[in-house]
Design a protein around this nucleic acid. Sequence first.
DNA 1: CTGTTAGCGCCTTCAC
DNA 2: GTGAAGGCGCTAACAG
Lengths: 340, 340
Amino acid sequence: MESKKTTIIDIAKQLNVSKSTVSRALSDHHSIGLRTKMRVQQLAKELNYEPDQTAIFFKQRKTYLIGVILPTLSNTFFASIVSGIEDVGYNKNYTLLLGQSRDEEDREKKIVETMKDHRVDGILISMAKSTYNYEHFEMLKKNNIPTVFFDRIPQMQDIHFIASKLESGMLEAVNLLVKRGNKLIALINGPEKMPACKERYEAYIKALKQNKIKAEEKYVVHTDITVEGNNAAMKELLDLPKRPTAVIAFNDYVAMDVIHYAKRHKVKINKDITFISFANEAICNYMDHPPLASIEQFPYQQGAKAAETLLELLEQGSDENQKNFRNILLPSQLVVKVTK
Amino acid sequence: MESKKTTIIDIAKQLNVSKSTVSRALSDHHSIGLRTKMRVQQLAKELNYEPDQTAIFFKQRKTYLIGVILPTLSNTFFASIVSGIEDVGYNKNYTLLLGQSRDEEDREKKIVETMKDHRVDGILISMAKSTYNYEHFEMLKKNNIPTVFFDRIPQMQDIHFIASKLESGMLEAVNLLVKRGNKLIALINGPEKMPACKERYEAYIKALKQNKIKAEEKYVVHTDITVEGNNAAMKELLDLPKRPTAVIAFNDYVAMDVIHYAKRHKVKINKDITFISFANEAICNYMDHPPLASIEQFPYQQGAKAAETLLELLEQGSDENQKNFRNILLPSQLVVKVTK
DNA sequence: CTGTTAGCGCCTTCAC
DNA sequence: GTGAAGGCGCTAACAG
């Protein structure tokens, strides 16, 4: 049983050459004699030599680590994003350092700290829904750590981000609903402070306007994206003197909860009330009463794009990171799930 | 804009002390004068000093990185496991290096390689379903990298592992089915080479025997856990001259597919055929026709236990890793989902 | 109490 | 073509 790992020094000694020679031979440096090169490489194999990456990382000031911070993996939307990121990184030898904020600001901050300590080459973040203070993001900027935000973007100036453009999907959704005869279209939105919430709201208003429907505030309700919150939001709508005939939900999880709730309250899904939501999660396909349609946000592509963007930042000089801020919006697309 | 990060040397120079003094002062070493300690710590703060962990890791031969390798995050079972691992690691300052094998042996191997290169302190693995060759696991042993397997365990001697003991859950399941009058109980099992598959099979046979039901081979079918495979398996059962009155599925995803399939073929769920499966995934709760019951495998706890076990290995001497192999089986438990 | 010295494993000028 | 020496940032054994 080998007690220690072999290093270039071991090889150098056994071959009576200098460690520099070994180093060069191992990396196929041109100015090394074929003979010595062979001898070194051969012995290296015999001794089961393996370069100590931590030493190399240390010296090159590069870790090949990408920090990924997101609220939770239990949401398959984020799981897909991770896959997109991983696949892009995989080909360029980057590995993912993962941290779930659990939607808690403190945790998010600690994770950011940890990632900085680990000297990750860059960071990809989707913000916790409870994060209002951005000092940890500012810190990343100050430390010149390339950072790309995705999906849940902070309202800051001068940042790189990728998100999906919900407006087009929302418009398609409303158009479809109107075409099917709906006039009272409600929106169950997320926490008011989330930018994604604001975006949905504005897209919703705009889409209504394009369809010449006047928006009424009481048809816009909010949930904190917990089961209770979702139920409460649906209750609010059902309690309205005039119930909406269609509901657009913040995402599929919310939709599943509110559909569940509505069914328990004798609502005929997609007949009495038609549902449409965001994310187009696969699990909806297993439901007997899925929403009529869902707005696909292409999480895998979003993750991939975020990773690509970060890698570009890494390739260019470190000073460039603070210029030419990438603000990328990927299109979203309505997917009709119930065809009959 | 600070061009370079400050190091202990910068501090040492400015204070006219040696870098060792700075190093000690920073880590609150007892043998440092209060005065100098204060001065150092103060200046460190002013200069925005932050220790370079990569240097420390490099020197201490410790990275505080735990490699986590699993088939896919899109299965929420694994996502929960990750959370369990993360939470345990979080308190002891370990961070997760994540890799998804996508159930591909080659990928799994490359990921193992990468993690070794990154000098992770230890590794947690759930095997890809296609992995038959264990040389990468042997390599980990040879390199003395503490490794704990979870859920999908290779059939190797002398390894540490955590899994859930399916036998008890399976027995509960069969008991329940028998109590409800079922005699023809089928099993839709996973890929035959998976140990977890063998375990289910044996538990199934045993449970039938305890209920004095004789097992018939044709009521045991297999799926490769793809949608097509699941459907094919269900078709096999439905095509039987005498259809089973109950089906135990490999896991909830399989159950959802086969229930979906059965419904399309006019089977009344949990009436004509009663379904029970494994994992107790939350999404089942959104189905109109979930399986009658599901066997909870406590993934979060499994992840946590795996992480705890690994951390114990890390704390003890590195030689000890190859002794006292931990083989831990956590209990499973039947959860009845349809109460009426 | 504090300074000196010697690495950790590797890469990289600069000489020969 | 090869060797010697220095250094990345930090810790720790050994002196004083």
